[in-house]
Design a protein around this nucleic acid. Sequence first.
DNA 1: CCCCCTTCATTGCATATGCAACGAGTTACC
DNA 2: GGTAACTCGTTGCATATGCAATGAAGGGGG
Lengths: 158, 158
Amino acid sequence: MSIEEFDLLAFLPYRLAVLSERVSRRLSAEYARLHGLSVAEWRVMVHLLSFQEVSIREICDYANLDKPKASRAVARLEQNGWVRKKSAEGDGRLVAISLTEEGHKVMEDIIPAAKDVERNLLEALSPADHIHLGEIVEKLHAVLDRDPKARPRAQKSA
Amino acid sequence: MSIEEFDLLAFLPYRLAVLSERVSRRLSAEYARLHGLSVAEWRVMVHLLSFQEVSIREICDYANLDKPKASRAVARLEQNGWVRKKSAEGDGRLVAISLTEEGHKVMEDIIPAAKDVERNLLEALSPADHIHLGEIVEKLHAVLDRDPKARPRAQKSA
DNA sequence: CCCCCTTCATTGCATATGCAACGAGTTACC
DNA sequence: GGTAACTCGTTGCATATGCAATGAAGGGGG
């Protein structure tokens, strides 16, 4: 089989990348329009909605960001007054980050818009599609979990 | 429904982004290891495998890259001697980009590794899964095709 | 109590990115 | 045929990114 036959459009990593990027752009158009958030900032804010006092490390693990990205995102959010940062009580290395009142208001604007974007996408899928997609995504992650050359899965649940 | 319930881990755009990025990194580990290619350079090279003389514009349309990215990727590939660039015959605005012998050799190294990565992923999916995934991806693209706020789909077939 | 090793967050730096502006070339239309 | 509108590719510039290095803080063994 000659390498000329390689079809980029059918190549799974490419297809995932193209779809994901398009979805991501559509979504970020919402939160950028509403309050000028970047992807990293959006993820940090979402995480803070569910958790009161988190460290940079926890944000990285949960929201799939690397440390510098999370750190800089938090710094900008703090400048905007949407996030509060103090040193953690027990352990002086950690920071304790939490949402401010204002930050919460910002999220009240953005979350419905984000949910609309997702709902719009999900309406095109049958419930079976949705479940199946979840299973497929999980199967692909499982392959990477077993692959020593793949980056470990960041995502840890609460 | 309070916005605190928003679950990032279950949010479709986030799940797509995380999977896609992980897959993309695993793949780029291969072509970066083999010949130091970036994602954009990889896509350009792949496209050139199938098409002889292409313009920047065609690369953008086909490989989902923006103009500056494609232009700079081609410039670097040319410096490496993997790509040849001349002015197009009929139209002086266009460039005619093609693979060199050396570029072809590079791809002979990389393509099998790339196919291995994909095969490894696909082995975790049943044939039905694979088909279903394709349908789901297409359905999601179709939503974005109808959405004026979404970026138009770049991808054009040959 | 001290030293070594680890973890956490930030910062520096080189490079990549995205957008808009530009210049060259082409087309259309009067 | 001249000019206005358009297309193509590149470049400038401000910002974002990824990685490694740094510095601060903890922990554990002697």
